[in-house]
Design a protein around this nucleic acid. Structure first.
Lengths: 229, 229
DNA sequence: CTCATATTCCATAGATCTATGGATAACACA
DNA sequence: TGTGTTATCCATAGATCTATGGAATATGAG
């Protein structure tokens, strides 16, 4: 059979696509996007969260801004970055999905973190809603508190992973707990579940996280909940 | 407000995601994936189609294989590459969608190719199906013939863009033509529409392409159609 | 106006990636 | 076994990317 030389899409177009591809070709930039899909952040906060130098983060952010994947908002001397629209977060999610589907390594890492191989049962969104309705479960948001404030599952208690051990008393020991975080690839919730189980608390994780909840069109609560639930 | 240092996902995971990101950080690799989502191909064929040196294409393919995005099949001395599953093609599509949503440049390039600004009306899948049922339209597949053979819309006529002008007589001048190709970013169909209109033939393009048709779960025909339609 | 804070800009050294030609490997066919 | 075909491997020069520290900007406070 004969093969033809056909220029299917003009090269320019592929170059544009590659602009976006380049953004997700660096692990730290993916991490930044994941964080920015949870809440807007200042540059110094992002540096702290990713462990990068301030100027390095700034450089990455500039790149990402040129590719139109993030946008900024100025407030006095500080500049807040955010993901430029839901499509960006959906794309990051698609990347994660593909990685889980094709790269055994990812699945393995995720499994390793699981509570001593119990293959921690995961709770679906519908499941979570049903349990909360029945008053059967306490939902905890183990992300950093600013991400909680930027949007959380209504009724969820903010209990950032790093404070979990210190604030265990806020959770009754005989309740059922469902923890959630940034998404299926986020390790905060699995770690929280591990901690809680070690204390004999019946804990499970939501199978995905806040962005998915949002994308599903479910109600999102902002700020701090009036009373602890 | 205080910000915390939390390592949300273990770095390893982001590195895995970046493995996939790296693949789509080079325009030629995106082009290769797009082609491989249409049909399997031999290395030399890919070199021809992309205008790259054989050994360069081979190198790219190796990279892509290590990232598990493509797979191979050997037949004697030749090796056929193919996309490693529908998720890969969906991801490439997601990349294109994001680019169109966020990068004005992409939309502009696509618009430039349009037939002298008629903003060529696009036909939806349902529309196309309805027209064919009514016998109202002739559907032509303007991709290279091997892609047609690997899967095409049932009843469509294979009329690769490069042969279109020479084979115009196969199309009545008073029929309505719907052309399709690889997807919304593919320039084959728009070019075909432009050619046909210049000849006074009433042509339109399908708004997306074969992969989307497939993903929609619609019937796909293989090989060569028994008679021209 | 001056100072302090939050970021960006700039230059650069080191690391990584890409394209390429020559050599090598796998296979089919005489 | 020898030869031709198809593709991969290898080494490398040149291009691009990343991290980093110091300088420059922009804004608000005093």
């Amino acid at each position: 059979m004969e093969y033809e030389t056909v220029g299917p899409l003009r090269a320019d177009i592929y170059e544009q696509l590659a602009r976006i591809g380049k953004i997700v070709s660096h692990p730290k930039r993916i991490e930044l996007l994941e964080i920015l899909c949870q809440s807007e952040r200042r540059v110094d906060s992002l540096a702290l969260a990713t462990g990068l130098q301030l100027t390095t983060v700034s450089a990455h952010l500039q790149t990402m801004r040129q590719a139109r994947l993030v946008e900024t908002r100025r407030e006095g001397t500080r500049i807040y970055y955010r993901a430029a629209g839901a499509e960006v977060c959906e794309f990051v999610k698609a990347l994660g999905d593909l990685a889980r589907a094709r790269l055994a390594e990812v699945d393995q890492i995720l499994r390793e973190i699981e509570v001593g191989g119990h293959s921690a049962e995961q709770v679906s969104r519908d499941d979570l809603i049903a349990r909360v309705r029945r008053g059967d479960a306490v939902v905890i948001d183990v992300r950093p508190s600013e991400e909680y404030e930027a949007g959380h599952i209504p009724g969820a208690l903010s209990l950032p992973l790093e404070h979990l051990e210190a604030r265990l008393d806020e959770i009754g020991s005989d309740v059922e707990v469902v923890a959630y975080c940034r998404g299926p690839l986020c390790l905060l919730a699995p770690q929280a579940v591990a901690i809680l189980r070690r204390r004999g608390i019946n804990a499970q994780r939501l199978e995905d996280g806040m962005p998915e909840w949002r994308q599903a069109g479910l109600a999102v609560a902002l700020g701090i909940e009036p009373g602890s639930m």
